[in-house]
Structure formats: structure tokens, C-alpha cells
Amino acid sequence: MLNRKFIPILVTIGLFAVMLAAGSFRYTGFFSLQVVFNLLIDNAFLLVVAVGMTFVIISGGIDLSVGSMIALTTMISASLIQEHGMPPIVVIPIVLVIGCAFGWAMGAIIHYFKVQPFIVTLAGMFLARGLCYIISLNTITINNSTYTAIAQTKVTLPGGSFISINVIIALIVVLLAIFVAHYTRFGRNVYALGGSEQSALLMGLPVARTKIGVYVVSGFCSSLAGVIYTFYMLSGYGLHAVGVELDAIASVVIGGTLLTGGVGYIAGSFFGVMIYGVIQTIISFQGTLSSWWTKIVIGLLLFVFILLQRVLSARRSTVKS
């Protein structure tokens, strides 16, 4: 018997395969390893954000601040490097720590003052965007040699195709996250928290630490995504990554994670991001289709997945009662 909890993620993987196959069938030059790698190259930052978002959503929360956090990270990095002449080796840890601290503060308010995550991270989103403009209203271009070197490095793989450093970072994050989610106590506590906070408390799990920790992870991931984004864009700007929080949430949901918490997989989010990328690629290959179709298709997929989850959970509760 097929375990029902795997249905959403199997649907996701199947969808990805079908889309890839359909694209290859329809467009010449679509099916190459490089196209798949380009998906990774263009969406490396989204992948990292989605990983953090997956933890948050599994725990039963939501984080709207991730897009702004990326922008803030690009801005701080650019400012410290260009205007204060600090070396990247110092700057990158600084921005990562800032990301964690930001996440910690939001998590603490959510947990201790019982304010809805939605509203706290909304404030965080405003704050991070606003702080970007306090640093500068304009784009700061980065011409630091380390950054440009990382941005331009192509890691050639056997077979002639290549990936970027960003992809390597993102894949490491994904693998690490899968490990954390399934093989550490923190990871399992996140699932428990999303399943039932009340039960988690009565079972003696460290609810406060886990809940706040989830937002720290998300803060860390979004600032790391910001670092990747800086490599990708080689600039800091307050309008970078607008709306990425929605892309991330959509990818996570399409990846089979339950928006109400408790159920989901990091690997699912990986395929969610890939589906997102494939849609964009197909639309660009099609030529006649315009980019806004991405949003409509994503909205449609969101609808289908949310409905699918709703049906599955409804059936589950009738089985129980």
C-alpha cells in the first residue's frame, strides 16, 4: 500500500518530470543537461530561501520577510565592501549573523508575545526593506575582485555542462537541510511542533527553542540567499528580490508541504523550485507566451495543491472519526 503522506511529493516529482519531458518534446534544444543546470543557476537563491521557508511552514508558521532580507543583505554587503572597503571574508559572516539575529528577534516576538507570525514577519519585511533605503536609495555596484571572481566562475562538469558556485552552495544547503530535518532532534521537533504545539509541550519538547530556532534558520537562509543573490547580481539594491517571499511560499506548497504545518519535505521544496524554473524556461522557449503566465500557472498550481491537501486531510479526519 502506498503511504498517503507521500502523495503530494510524488505528484510534485511527477509534475516536474512531465514538464521536463513536455518541454523536451516540444522545443528543440530544450533537453540538455545545461538547461537543467541553468534552472539551478538562475534559482539558486530561491532554493536556499525555500529551504528556510520549508522549516518555518512545517512548524506551522510563515515568514514574509525573506525577500526583504535578501535585499537588505545585498545592500549591507555592497555598502560594507564598496564604501567601507571591508574584505568579503569579513562581510559574509557579518551579514549571516545579521540574518540570524533578525530571525531570532521575529521568532522571539512570535513565541513570547503570541503575535501571529504573519504580522510579525510583515513588520520584519517592512523593516528590512526600509533599512535598505536608509543605507542607500540607489544601486551600489560591486566591483570587488573576489565577488566578481565567484560570480564568473563556471564549474565545468564532465560532459561539458557547467554550474556556478552559487549552485554548489545551494545544493549543500539542501543536503544539509534534509539531514537536519530528518536526522536531528531539532528537525524532528519542528515536525512535532507543526503537528501539535500542545502535544509537543506535553511531551516535554523544547517548544520555545524550536519555534524561535525555525525563524533563525529562515533568517540565516534568507541572508545566505542574499549572499548568493549578491554574487548573482553583483550589486546591492533596495528593490532586489521583490516578491520572492511569495515565490518561496508557492514553491514550498507546490513541493507538497502542508501550509497548516506538520507535513512536508525539503526535497519537495527542491522540486517545487525546479517546477517554478521549468515553467519560466518553457515560457521563454515558447516565445509567444509572456512572462506573466508564470504567475498565473503558479497560482493555478497553488490552487490545485492546496485543494489536494485539503481533500487528503479531509479524508484523513473522516477515517479517524
Binding site: R188, N189, Y191, A192, G194, S196, M203, L205, G262, V263
Partner: peptide, 13 residues
């Protein structure tokens, strides 16, 4: 926690 496995529910923490 309904979403965790039986074994986890016994041993979590």
C-alpha cells in the same frame, strides 16, 4: 503528534 511516525511518538525527545 499525528504527523509523526509511531516510533517517533514513543521516543521523540
Amino acid at each position: 503528534c499525528p504527523n509523526l511516525t509511531v516510533a517517533e511518538n514513543i521516543y521523540i525527545g
